[in-house]
Design a protein around this nucleic acid. Structure first.
Lengths: 141, 141
DNA sequence: TTGGACTATAGACAATGGTCAATGGTCTAT
DNA sequence: ATAGACCATTGACCATTGTCTATAGTCCAA
């Protein structure tokens, strides 16, 4: 039983049928053979391909990036260096995202500490800090 | 000169005209008065409102969340506690995002270290780790 | 044979935050 | 008066990653 319908493939890979077809349109999964009645027929290797995609996605790769990885995976001329480069680029992306979020977090915590949380929001220091009121003339609230 | 056309407002707030109109459709900016020729006319306070939006956006608030903050900002019954709650919720959101990304980062770094970066990608440990091949039978590459 | 489960396609819809194009009216400076 | 800059509206479009709908054909088991 090496042949799978799309439903079986999807189930074994842990995705939906729609997702498989979507990946096919996106070129992440090759167009499969068809039965006489036009049903898609997959071999079991496609399960691994879908799981590759899932795992890479969970590591923060976009579908486009995953596509590149899949090409490398099946290109006999590809080098470890090329794969490693992509991983390192992604590591840097994620470090940058973390840095950005950390910066935002620090700002928010400062903002939060500026407010004791009691009373009317009328003179709320958080709201006041959000008002981008550098110039006097705009502050006509 | 308290009256601004949309172009002047946008320029002073550092956004585009399209963005102002988009915010108006989204309810973030009130529908302004119009001239006889149907031009939008804003008072200078709207600059502060747009800057409020910009600043909140830079702190990771979505437009919907910003809308809530703007309501609090202009609601005389709103309390500091309500504002603070939103900020604290956002702080937690961001902490969670950072935690998720840190987890991903650790995985990626482990993956990256598993590969020396030399030679063909044919036996690349990174690609192998991405193959979700738990069961022997799928591993028929 | 018939009903239920499965598959096919094309295309719409979701959320997010805008951006752009087309068409036409308005304002201002020369 | 006229050119060029500005403004109006409607609606389409961008990227991302699917999800859902509608309509229709297929397969299998009782």
């Amino acid at each position: 039983m090496n042949e799978l319908t799309i439903g079986k493939l999807a189930k074994r890979a842990g995705v939906t049928i729609d997702t498989v077809r979507f990946y096919e349109r996106r070129g992440l999964v090759a167009e499969p053979k068809r039965t006489a009645s036009n049903y898609r027929i997959y071999s079991a290797v496609e399960i691994a391909r879908l799981q590759f995609i899932k795992k890479a996605k969970s590591l923060g790769f976009s579908l486009n990036e995953i596509n590149e990885l899949l090409v490398l995976r099946h290109n006999p001329d590809a080098t470890k260096k090329e794969v490693k480069n992509r991983v390192e680029r992604k590591i840097n992306d994620i470090k940058r995202k973390i840095a950005d979020l950390s910066y935002i977090l620090a700002d928010l915590e400062k903002l939060n500490q500026s407010c004791n949380g009691h009373g009317s929001a009328d003179d709320c220091p958080i709201l006041e800090a959000l008002d981008g009121c550098e110039e006097e003339e705009h502050c006509c609230k």
